[in-house]
Design a protein around this nucleic acid. Structure first.
Length: 234
DNA sequence: GCGATTTGACCAAT
DNA sequence: ATTGGTCAAATCGC
């Protein structure tokens, strides 16, 4: 296992820890009405999913080989969110009701299947309702260099996040400009700063979301004005 | 207009 | 005949 992957996993776990602390503070102070908690929750779940997936440990490997099309499975990952951050860019090409499950199965192909002759596919199926668990079944191997292509081209959308790379501004929510001069970071707890900033400087009649800055190089633990967080208009 | 998604149809395996 | 996987035309959204 490479050091690079370990570092990514650690970063993802640190991010999840930070988001969990932010969520804890919001819940503790009963301030969930002023700031949306959903992005924090999703970020926590995705952080753990990414950390697990980056270790490339198939938790279940299908024993089924009776169907020719089932051959070539590389691994199966369970994720709490359907938009599982696995480091690749996928394009949906079908969905189907499966007899053995009440939930539909979604079929994805690597976004660069044609451009770079990449034959990687994956299937996503909800296997548990409460809490929701989505099973990601990976088939085939990537032959693409999707990340560099995507960044240079700026062609991937909001649902297609490559964890290691910065999303082009054209598909990102527009961050609000924050004057770092107005904010002092005397302690490591950013929650009060964020809430105060929203209360004091932003429009009261508009909704805002606080997003962890999970996009690779922009993941900025310890940097001002808000370590690892961005604020966007909802 | 273009790219992405949806969805019914088709095909191969059993 | 049934089922799962894929194709491709239609539709949608920017």
């Amino acid at each position: 296992m490479s050091l690079e992957i370990d570092a990514k996993a650690v970063s993802a776990l640190l991010l999840g820890q930070g988001c969990a602390n932010n969520l804890k503070t919001l819940l503790k102070n009963h301030e969930t009405g002023s700031v949306s908690t959903e992005p924090l929750i999703n970020s926590i779940l995705d952080s753990f999913s990414f950390a697990l997936s980056s270790q490339n440990i198939p938790r279940h490997v299908s024993q089924r080989s009776s169907k020719k099309k089932m051959c070539g499975i590389q691994g199966i990952e369970d994720s709490p969110t359907p938009a599982h951050i696995d480091g690749f860019i996928w394009r949906k090409y079908g969905q189907k009701t499966i007899k053995t499950s009440p939930h539909q199965r979604w079929y994805y192909r690597c976004a660069y299947a044609k451009d770079q002759n990449c034959d990687a596919t994956k299937r996503v199926q909800k296997i548990q309702d409460n809490p929701p668990v989505y099973r990601n079944t990976y088939v085939g191997q990537h032959a693409c260099e999707a990340p560099a292509y995507a960044v240079n081209n700026g062609t991937y959308g909001s649902k297609m996040i490559k964890f290691d790379y910065v999303m082009p501004e054209s598909v990102m929510p527009q961050p609000l400009s924050i004057d770092s001069q107005e904010i002092t970071m005397e302690d490591k707890d950013t929650d009060d700063h964020i809430l105060n900033y929203i209360n004091e400087h932003l429009m009261e009649d508009e909704a805002y979301d606080v997003f962890p800055d999970v996009l690779g190089e922009r993941c900025c633990f310890g940097l001002e004005p808000f370590p690892g967080l961005n604020i966007y208009k909802s």
